[in-house]
Simulated assay, not measured.
Amino acid sequence: MIVRILGEGQYDVADAALDRLNDLDGAVERAVEAGDEAAFEAALAALLDGVRTVGVPHDLDSLDESDLILPPADADIAQVRDLLGDEGLIPG
């Protein structure tokens, strides 16, 4: 799966890592629903760090479409609220 972090780039993430990323995504979703800015910032940072940790940078010369698009590290809670679907930022 190819995951894009806006403003940063794409990462190749193995399907086996999605459960861990879904846990981190759940923390983002809970913080957004609670309107807890501090928890949101920490949860989003953890999610993006999780993608960077389990993912491998995608070839910069490749024009492959991203399977998932995540907000940039400096996104605010309102921006992420608009991006959240029924299944969070990472479906599954």
Rank of each mutant, 00 (worst) to 15 (best):
V13F: 04
V13S: 02
V13C: 01
V13H: 00
V13Q: 04
V13K: 02
V13I: 05
A14E: 14
A14V: 10
D15R: 10
D15F: 07
D15L: 12
D15H: 10
A16Q: 15
A16P: 05
A16N: 13
A16S: 14
A17W: 01
A17R: 09
A17K: 10
L18E: 14
L18V: 12
L18W: 08
D19W: 07
D19E: 15
R20V: 12
R20I: 11
R20W: 06
R20F: 09
L21Q: 06
L21T: 00
L21K: 00
L21Y: 00
L21G: 05
L21D: 05
L21A: 05
N22M: 02
N22L: 06
N22V: 04
N22K: 11
D23A: 13
D23T: 14
L24A: 13
L24E: 10
L24P: 05
D25V: 02
D25C: 07
D25G: 07
D25T: 01
D25N: 14
G26Q: 04
G26P: 02
A27S: 14
A27V: 03
A27N: 14
A27R: 15
V28A: 11
V28Y: 03
V28W: 01
E29K: 08
E29D: 13
E29W: 05
E29G: 08
E29Q: 12
E29R: 15
R30K: 13
R30F: 09
R30G: 04
R30H: 02
R30Q: 06
R30W: 01
A31M: 07
A31V: 00
A31T: 01
A31N: 11
A31F: 03
V32T: 09
V32G: 08
V32I: 04
E33V: 09
E33Q: 15
E33T: 07
E33F: 03
E33C: 06
E33I: 09
A34V: 09
A34W: 13
A34D: 11
A34Y: 10
G35L: 03
G35H: 08
G35E: 06
D36I: 01
D36L: 10
D36W: 04
E37T: 12
E37N: 14
E37I: 15
E37R: 14
E37C: 06
E37K: 13
A38G: 03
A39V: 04
A39M: 09
A39I: 00
A39N: 11
A39G: 08
F40V: 02
F40A: 08
F40E: 07
E41R: 14
E41Y: 02
E41P: 06
A42Q: 15
A42S: 14
A42H: 09
A43M: 07
A43T: 03
A43H: 02
A45H: 13
A45W: 05
